[in-house]
Design a protein around this nucleic acid. Structure first.
Length: 426
RNA sequence: GUGGGCGUAGCUCAGUUGGUUAGAGCGUCGGGUUGUGGCCCCGGAGGUCGAGGGUUCAAAUCCCUCCGCUCACCCCA
C-alpha cells in the first residue's frame, strides 16, 4: 500500500466512531448536570505557552512535543494537553471576575511524540474539565466526582481512585530539600534510572518498579509528613466530601504528576485491563498556573479523561445506530412511490433506507437483514394495484397489509413514534 | 531513545525436514426456478507470502539489511 497513516495516529472508522460519540455524550451529560460550559480551542499554540505552563524541564516539553516553526519562523506546538490552552484563553478574554468561578470543559485531540503502545498514541483524545477561580476543597471534589461519574457511565470495569496532596509553595520546598538530601546519600544504592530521576524529577523516583529501589525508598521522606496545616486541612475536606458523595478512594502518598503546575490535590483513576498505561483519568489543582502565564492569582483544579483508554474499557455491546425501516421496492413505479415515503419518514427523523438498485426482492431482503432493521416495507406492482403495501416484522416474520394512504402513520405507529412534528433535540 | 514478539486473502490464522497451480474459517458476490432475510448446501472473486538483496536446480520457509505493527521500559490521559 502506498501511503499509510503516520505512526501513532489512527483512523477512527465506523464501528468505533460510535463509541467515541457515546463517551462524548456521557461526558456532555455529566458536564451539563454540573453546570460546565464547553470551550473549543485551537490545536496549535505558541510553544512558549507550554514551555511556561507545563514546565521547561518536564519530559513533555523536553522531548514529547510536536514543535515546529511556521512560515514566519515562529515556534508553534501542537497542544500536548488542554489546561494551558484553557488558561490562556481565560486570561486572553478576561473571562474571570472577582469571586465568580468559571466552569469549563473541552473535548479534543492532543499530541505527544511518544513511542506508541497499548493505550498510548501520538494523537489522542481527552475530555477535559477545569474549575477556575475557587480554592474550595469542594471544587476539588467536584472535579474528581465528574471524572468518576463519566467513567462510571461508560464502563463497569473495576476502577480505583488514588489521591494525594503535593503540598503547596509553603511546604513542598521543605520536603523537596530533605528528599534531595536523602537521594544524594543513597545514590550509590539506586538503579541507573533512579539516579537520573533524582536529578531531573525526584518525585518520580517513587514510581520505580525495582524491588531494591523500593525497599530503599521506604525510608525516604514522604510529602505527607511535610504538609502545612492548610494543606492537611484542604485534603481532609476533599476526602470528607468524597465520602459523602460516595466515591471510594485510596490515599497514595507517592502519587505525583508530570506537569509542573500541580499543587495540593492530585489524583488518578486507575483501571484493570489497560496494560502498562493504566491511568484512565487524572487531574489535580494548579493554583499557580495563571500567574506563571502572566495572569492574576487564579486558583484552578481540573481533570482529563483519556478517551482511547476509556475506549478499551467500554462494555461490550452494540453502539451503532440502527436502521428503523427498510423499504423494498420492486419496479420503477414502486420505487417512485417509495421515494415519497422516504421523504415523509425522514422529515419525521425516521432512519429509513432503500436499495439504490432495483434488485430482486430476495436481494433486498438480504440487504435489510444485514442492516438488522426491525421492519421491511414491501411494495411492488401487485401492491400498487391493490393499493396496499406489506409491512414485515423481521423478527417474527409476521406481515400485514397497509393501505397506501396510511403507510406513513402505520409505520410510525409500528415503530412507536407518535409525533408528526420533528422531535426536538434530546 | 532502548528491548522483546510479530508481518501469508478485507478480517482471524494454517503452511510439516526448502520441492510443482499458497490453504482454511469468517466476510463478500452469485446460485439452490417464478416476489420474501436469517440456517443449510453448491460455486466464484480476492494474495507482488511487508520491501530489497543473498544462498540454492528450487525460498512464504534459510541468511542479511530496511520498513511496518505490537507489547514493555521511559513517560503519561
Amino acid at each position: 500500500m502506498a501511503i499509510r497513516a503516520i505512526r501513532g495516529f489512527k483512523d477512527i472508522l465506523p464501528g468505533e466512531s460510535e463509541k467515541y460519540r457515546f463517551m462524548e455524550e456521557q461526558a456532555r451529560r455529566v458536564f451539563k448536570n454540573f453546570g460546565f460550559a464547553e470551550m473549543r480551542l485551537p490545536i496549535l499554540e505558541k510553544t512558549e505557552l507550554f514551555a511556561r505552563g507545563i514546565g521547561d524541564h518536564t519530559d513533555i516539553v523536553e522531548k514529547e512535543m510536536y514543535t515546529f516553526k511556521d512560515r514566519k519562523g515562529e515556534s508553534v506546538t501542537l497542544r500536548p494537553e488542554a489546561t494551558a490552552g484553557i488558561m490562556r484563553a481565560v486570561l486572553e478574554h478576561k473571562l474571570y471576575s472577582q469571586g465568580r468561578e468559571l466552569k469549563l470543559f473541552t473535548i479534543g485531540p492532543m499530541f505527544r511524540y511518544e513511542r506508541p503502545q497499548k493505550g498510548r498514541l501520538r494523537q489522542f483524545t481527552q475530555i477535559n474539565s477545569e474549575l477556575i477561580g475557587s480554592k474550595s476543597p469542594l471544587a476539588d471534589a467536584e472535579i474528581v466526582w465528574q471524572a468518576w461519574e463519566i467513567l462510571r457511565r461508560c464502563t463497569s470495569a473495576e476502577l480505583r481512585l488514588e489521591i494525594n496532596s503535593l503540598g503547596c509553595p509553603e511546604c513542598r520546598p521543605l520536603h523537596r530539600k530533605d528528599l534531595d538530601l536523602f537521594l544524594e546519600n543513597q545514590a550509590g544504592e539506586l538503579c541507573e534510572d533512579c539516579r537520573r530521576r533524582s536529578k531531573t524529577n525526584p518525585l518520580r523516583i517513587f514510581d520505580c518498579k525495582q524491588d531494591r529501589c523500593r525497599s530503599i525508598l521506604k525510608f525516604a521522606p514522604v510529602i505527607k509528613h511535610y504538609w502545612c496545616p492548610e494543606c492537611s486541612k484542604h485534603l481532609g475536606k476533599v476526602l470528607d466530601h468524597l465520602e459523602i458523595i460516595g466515591i471510594p478512594f485510596v490515599i497514595n502518598p507517592f502519587l505525583v504528576r508530570g506537569l509542573d503546575y500541580y499543587v495540593r490535590t492530585t489524583f488518578e483513576i486507575i483501571a484493570q485491563g489497560l496494560g502498562a498505561q493504566n491511568t484512565v483519568a487524572a487531574g489535580g489543582r494548579y493554583d499557580g498556573l495563571s500567574q506563571v502565564l502572566g495572569g492574576p492569582d487564579l486558583p484552578g483544579v481540573g481533570m482529563a479523561v483519556g478517551m482511547e483508554r476509556l475506549l478499551i474499557l467500554l462494555d461490550e455491546r452494540d453502539y451503532s445506530d440502527r436502521v428503523q425501516l427498510f423499504i423494498a421496492a420492486l419496479g420503477a413505479d414502486a420505487r417512485e412511490e417509495a421515494l415519497e415515503w422516504l421523504r415523509e419518514l425522514r422529515k419525521r427523523n425516521v432512519c429509513v433506507q432503500m436499495s439504490y438498485e432495483d434488485k430482486s426482492l430476495k436481494a433486498q431482503m438480504k440487504q435489510a437483514d444485514r442492516l438488522k432493521t426491525p421492519f421491511v416495507l414491501i411494495v411492488g406492482e401487485k401492491e400498487l394495484e391493490d393499493e396496499e403495501a406489506i409491512l414485515r416484522d423481521m423478527e417474527t416474520s409476521q406481515q400485514k397489509a397497509i393501505n397506501l394512504d396510511d403507510v406513513i402513520d402505520e409505520v410510525l405507529k409500528e415503530l412507536g413514534i407518535s409525533g408528526k412534528k420533528e422531535s426536538s433535540q434530546a
